[in-house]
Computed example of a mutant assay.
Amino acid sequence: MLTSKQRAALRRAANGLDPVFQVGKGEIDEGLIKSTADCLAARELIKMKVLETSLYTAREAAALLAEKTGADVVQVIGSKFVLFLKKRKDSAFDGLL
């Protein structure tokens, strides 16, 4: 669980990121969950976008993906959301957190 100060630091770090995945009109399936988990393992902090044709709102998609990957939802704004999953070792965010 992130504190408000940690969440603020991660929001600042995510400000310049581009979305790495889009949630489209299909279901959130195992392929998207695995891809998201792999990306989180590599980057720790990712931004995603939910298309207008999606069955999910950004908040619903963020909550579902965070639950399935073990990540924390950092922020949801409009159709975009940010997820964070800290690495066990050698985290790039050790100074921030």
Rank of each mutant, 00 (worst) to 15 (best):
L2Q: 13
L2I: 05
T3A: 06
Q6P: 01
Q6W: 02
Q6R: 06
A9T: 05
L10F: 09
L10K: 14
R11P: 09
R12E: 15
A14N: 12
N15V: 02
G16H: 14
G16S: 11
G16Q: 04
V20P: 07
Q22T: 07
Q22Y: 14
I28D: 08
I28E: 04
I28F: 00
I28G: 08
D29Q: 07
D29H: 03
T36W: 11
T36Y: 11
A37M: 08
R43E: 11
R43Q: 08
E44R: 00
E44I: 10
M48L: 15
M48P: 10
K49A: 13
L51Y: 08
E52V: 00
T53Q: 15
S54V: 03
S54H: 02
L55M: 07
L55D: 07
A61S: 08
A62E: 03
A63T: 10
A63L: 02
L65Q: 08
T69W: 04
G70I: 00
V74P: 10
V74A: 14
V74Q: 10
V76W: 12
I77A: 09
G78D: 14
K80N: 12
F81R: 08
V82R: 13
L83V: 00
L83M: 06
K86W: 00
A92I: 00
F93N: 05
F93E: 10
F93K: 06
D94E: 06
D94H: 09
L96S: 14
L96W: 06
